[in-house]
């Protein structure tokens, strides 16, 4: 592992950009192609790359499995919770117009929060699938 300098250095350079790109895809989702799903996968890909290069142990230190699991559950709650909030505000389920006085802003906030939920869940699920399979010891 230690002698693969190019790999390690390359990964070190790449991973921040991967994560950043994920965030770009996420936040640009309002205006162009993109959104939580793609962003989540890319974000997870960054971690998977980290785990592949630096070992599962280190990856789990950075992102403990418990946190990953919480993420995957939390995202669903953010998504569905948004719907519930719109309902509490007097609209229908996922009726973003109710989120702000101005329907335009409401839509914006609604989509943002739903996409955030998707990002968190997809990231959590992807990484936990990776952990689950990579963490198996062949018997």
């Amino acid at each position: 592992m230690d002698d693969r300098v190019i790999l390690r250095v390359g990964a070190k350079v790449l991973i921040p950009f991967i994560l950043l790109f994920a965030l770009y895809v996420q936040f640009h989702g309002d205006y162009g192609p993109g959104g939580g799903f793609q962003a989540g996968v890319i974000f997870a890909a960054g971690f998977v790359l980290y785990a592949l290069v630096y070992g599962l142990g280190n990856a789990k230190k950075v992102m403990p499995p418990a946190v990953v699991h919480v993420c995957s559950a939390l995202g669903v709650m953010i998504f569905a919770g948004t719907g519930v909030v719109t309902m509490l505000l007097g609209g229908g389920f996922l009726d973003y117009n109710a989120l702000a006085h101005d329907p335009h802003h409401g839509q914006h906030w609604g989509i943002f929060s739903v996409e955030a939920g998707v990002l968190v869940t997809v990231f959590g699920v992807m990484v936990s699938i990776f952990y689950a399979f990579a963490g198996r010891r062949s018997s």
Binding site: H69, S72, A73, L74, M77, A80, G83, V84, G92, F93
Partner: peptide, 21 residues
């Protein structure tokens, strides 16, 4: 009036909650 969707959404919210606790 929101009951048709709450019927599904509340259990959907309960599922991750059951995991988180």
């Amino acid at each position: 009036e929101n009951l048709p969707v709450l019927q599904v959404v509340v259990p959907l919210l309960a599922a991750p909650l059951a995991f988180l606790v």
